[in-house]
Amino acid sequence: MSRLTVKVFYALATQAAPLYAFGIMSEQAPAMDLDYVANLARIELTPEEKARFADQFASILEYFEKLKAVDVSGIEPTAHAFPVENVWGVDEPAPSFRPEEAMRNAPAQRENMVVVPKVVEDA
């Protein structure tokens, strides 16, 4: 899927269909679709949190607009302060946790397995 298709898809998927999703940026900072983002992040928010965060994000995103004024043409991105080459570990067996050590912090367990809610539908 091309990037444009993804953007269009996203715009259609979120009912707001904001213009900025097509790359047309207004001078104002775009508003964040909090429900959409909270869903991506898998965090349940209370109505009070939503209201408070919406205001706070508005001022933070407005502050982020400073970045748009910078000429970054021809500038390479920095992911790390120092160039890090791929680091390979030696593929040798080494001592590791016993099952009970690894399971020590599991919120629910049975026979050294983590118990989770059912993830498959009934037949």
């Binding site: 964040m32 909090l34 991506l40 965090i43 500038i75 390479e76 991105p77």
Partner: peptide
Amino acid sequence: KRRILLGTYVLSSGYYDAYYLRAQKVRT
């Protein structure tokens, strides 16, 4: 929560270039 949401937003489709990649360039 605020930071996870903010981070999720700047990495999400349609915003990655405008925020995340641009911020990495300004970091340079």
